[in-house]
Design a protein around this nucleic acid. Structure first.
Lengths: 112, 112
DNA sequence: TAGACTAGTTTGCTTTACAAACTAGTCATT
DNA sequence: AATGACTAGTTTGTAAAGCAAACTAGTCTA
């Protein structure tokens, strides 16, 4: 398994990543965290993820609904909104632009 | 020209980008800012870039030397250190891992 | 009943981001 | 010689983020 991505680099894109996951299916904070691990996005601390989800709800990108679980405490599932989908698309565009810029820099340094 | 990258997304990688540019040649803050624009990395505010350069010098990644300019105030040129080169390589690895993870997510959503 | 795992909230500290104000140099107009 | 535009850097003050840690609380197994 590849090395973990430092929270430093992950910071800016965390919201975008969450929106992409929630666009596929509704998830709750704890599950989201595990889902990200599966994608190689190293464990985001709960002190970061839960407040971020709350902030994203305030911004109108997602909505949360509490649901009881048969195997633990109640979960708070988050659903992406129409605004959230727009924001997700905006993120994808920005990401592709960023990729281009950074990869150009990396390529230049390797064949100098 | 493509749309600008929000400071939000740029945040985590700003230090890595600066290290890559300084690895090619020494630069001063203002010139660095213009160089980044050329790579499509939208104008980083001076309130961010100058303090970051100072912090990077404290961390030992770069060293600054003042040099007079014939066409303006004195400039502070920054040179990458051996530690900085290590950090730069670490960044490149992390970046490639991040790219894999995020692109997997994007691909999945497009063919669902 | 104690420990492990799940699930979420809240608090408090530290770091970061950055607009804005300020100093200071050159150069072209007016 | 004064004004404005561009270059170049520092400092200050505020706001926002990140997150460890403490706390509550549910299930399940030993």
């Amino acid at each position: 398994m590849a090395q973990d991505i430092s929270s430093q680099v992950l910071k800016g894109i965390l919201q975008g990543v969450i929106l992409m996951i929630l666009n596929k299916k509704a998830e709750y904070g704890y599950g989201l965290s595990q889902e990200m691990n599966r994608y190689g996005l190293s464990s985001v601390p709960k002190g970061t993820i839960y407040p971020l989800l709350t902030a994203m709800e305030k911004r109108g990108f997602i909505t949360g609904k509490r649901k009881a679980s048969t195997l633990g405490p109640t979960r708070k599932y988050y659903y992406i909104t129409a605004t959230g989908k727009q924001e997700k698309d905006r993120f994808i565009q920005e990401w592709s632009q960023l990729q281009k810029s950074v990869n150009t820099l990396i390529k230049e340094e390797s064949h100098d």
